[in-house]
Each structure stands twice: as C-alpha cells, then as structure tokens.
Computed example of a mutant assay.
Amino acid sequence: MPVFQAFYVSENEDKTFSNQIIERSTDDLPAGDVLIRVKYSSLNYKDALSSIGNRGVTRNYPHTPGIDAAGIVEASDSEAFTVGEQVIVTGFDLGMNTSGGFGEYIRVPAKWVVKLPRGLRLKESMILGTAGLTAALCIDKLIKNGLTPDKGKVIVTGATGGVGTMAVMILVKLGFDVVGVTGKAEGEVFLLGLGAKEVVSREAVNDQSGRPMLKGIYAGCVDTVGGNMLATILKSMQYNGVVSICGLVQSPELPTSVFPFILRGVSMFGIDSSECDIEWRKQMWKNLARKWKPEGMQTITKTVSLKGLPKEIKKILKGGQMGRVVVRL
C-alpha cells in the first residue's frame, strides 16, 4: 500500500506536544469505505487546537489533524463513488479523532464524502472549507426565515476570521449591506476590501448599560463569537430580525433576556456544520460553486505546504490570521 507524508502530532513524556512530518502507510489509516488522495486541505482554529494537544478536540495521540480535505478517490467500496472522482470531506470526525487532511491520504465512511460540484475547483473548495460551509449554512437559515437585502443591514461578528470572512463575501455577493465587526487594527481595510459597507469595533457592540433593549439597527446577523457581543446584537435587532450563531470565541455564555424575542420577534438559530444533514450540506456546496461563490477568493488566501503549517498554527492561535490558509499536499 502507498506510503505518504503526514503532519503528525505526538505527546511527549513531559506531557507537552510536538509535531513533525513523517511517512505513514495507508495500512495505518482507519477503516472506511473510501480512500482519498488529498490534494488540498485548509487550516482552521480547531486544527490548531488539535495540533497543541487540546483534548476537547482530539482525545488520543499521536494524530494527524485537518478537518477539511479535497482530493481524488483512490479506492472505493461504495457504489456512490468511483476511482478518479474529485470529492470533498469536511466535518464529522475528520481531523478530530480520525486521521485528517494534513496527510496525503485519508480513509473515511462514504456518508462523509461529497462530490465536488461543477463550477468549483479542488483548491477553491478548500479556500471555502468548513469556514465557507458554516457561513453558507448560517446565511441559508437567515434567508429561509425572511432575510432579504431590502430589509436592512446584516452584521457579521469575528469578521476577519475564517467563517466571518466567508460570511461577509457571500453576503456581499448576494447583495446585502454588510457591517463587519473586528478588533484588529488592519481589519477595517481588509473588510472594506471584501465589500463590507461598514466596519465597527468590538467595543461598539459590547453594551454594558444593562438595558434590556437598544435601538433596532440590524435585520440579520451571523455571529461567530457569542458572549456579550451576541447579547448586544440581539438587543439591537430590528423587528423580526434573524440571527445565526455558530461560535463562542468570546464566550459560551449569553447574558441576555427574553425581551428581544418577545418584544421584537427576533429569531435565533444555532448552526453546526460538523454533523449537519448531508442533503443540506450538498445543496450548500452547490450554492457555493455557483450563485453564492465569493469573488476574489484567491486574494484572501495564503497557500502553504505541510512544512509551513507550524508557523501558521502559531499565528491563528494568537488571533493573527486574516483570510484563509490552504494547505497544498
């Protein structure tokens, strides 16, 4: 069976963690229906956590992270996939407790695999990756619950992160007026370059007044941070405003009241891209390949090899990453 290179994270005797690039055999991969030769992966915050030994992400080491992978079917025991097909795998257990996309091969269950839709290249699918899929799911939920461009502004928190960046780009493509939230000095120029109409600081959406309601400003929201920022935005939604939430970078706590929901009819939806329905997942990839495909994706993307991963992992853990990092295998 093929020998391949993989980014490998190991636990040391002193309980610290280190990484190296090693050669592995496909015989070492877990059981699964489809063997995929990985061409591209992408770096997500969850991958960075797995790379430093976070047990909330990865229970057992040594391990190869990478929750995203795009490549070519090498072998298949499933009638749904044939050798040579281009495919995408994101989420489920890939890169968490199953050997992930930071290796040249993965073996996974067929139910995790999506065929690369027409209109999308393998590299483009990894510029999008879990971040793009999550953003698409958030936006789809908002649109299905009444959000249209004429309703008003849509605010995106954590707007320079992976999901936030993709949410801004997709919403702009769909004709929405987007307000991006960032705490980075260089974030304003970055977000305005993506097409955001307005950029506000974290402090501007961190209300400490204790008031249960604020002026209704926003028609929609994609929130990636949680905490008091989300609570502030909920109080600032217009009547029948809609909010999709998918992250907890600031906090998992939500210090709010029922007032936004019962006085303004605000609706809030939780999004989980990891285990979402496969048919919804397929539809979102089709959207991302066609009418929702962000323009200028290459301009916000840095491409690295496995050797370049450690530097980028340190950067994302420090909150210094903007745009997307694609890993070329």
Score class of each variant (00 low, 15 high):
Ala196Leu: 09
Lys173Ala: 08
Gly241Tyr: 10
Val189Thr: 13
Ser209Met: 05
Gly180Ala: 14
Ser209Pro: 07
Ala231Thr: 08
Ala167Asp: 10
Phe259Arg: 00
Val249Gly: 03
Ile217His: 01
Gly241Arg: 11
Cys246Arg: 03
Phe261Ser: 04
Thr182Cys: 08
Val168Ile: 15
Gly210Arg: 03
Ile278Cys: 00
Glu279Thr: 07
Thr232Phe: 09
Gln208Ala: 04
Met229Arg: 00
Leu230Lys: 06
Gly162Ala: 11
Met166Trp: 05
Asp223Ile: 14
Gly227Val: 06
Asn240Ala: 12
Thr224Leu: 14
Gly220Leu: 13
Val242Gln: 11
Leu234Asp: 05
Ile245Ser: 15
Ala196Asp: 07
Glu186Lys: 09
Cys246Gln: 07
Val258Thr: 12
Ser274Pro: 00
Ser267Val: 02
Gln238Asn: 14
Val242Ser: 09
Val199Arg: 02
Lys235Pro: 13
Ser273Gly: 13
Thr224Gln: 12
Val242Ile: 14
Val199Lys: 04
Met229Glu: 04
Ile217Gln: 12
Ile170Phe: 12
Leu192Thr: 07
Thr224Phe: 00
Asn240Met: 12
Ala231Met: 07
Leu234Phe: 06
Pro212Glu: 15
Ile245Asp: 00
Gly226Met: 12
Thr165Arg: 04
Arg264Trp: 07
Thr165Cys: 13
Ile233Glu: 11
Leu192Ser: 03
Gly220Ser: 12
Val168Asn: 13
Val168Leu: 12
Gly216Asn: 08
Thr182Trp: 01
Gly270Lys: 02
Glu198Ile: 01
Leu248Thr: 12
Lys184Leu: 15
Ala204His: 03
Ser267Phe: 01
Ser244Trp: 11
Leu192Asn: 11
Ala219Cys: 11
Ile217Gly: 01
Pro212Trp: 03
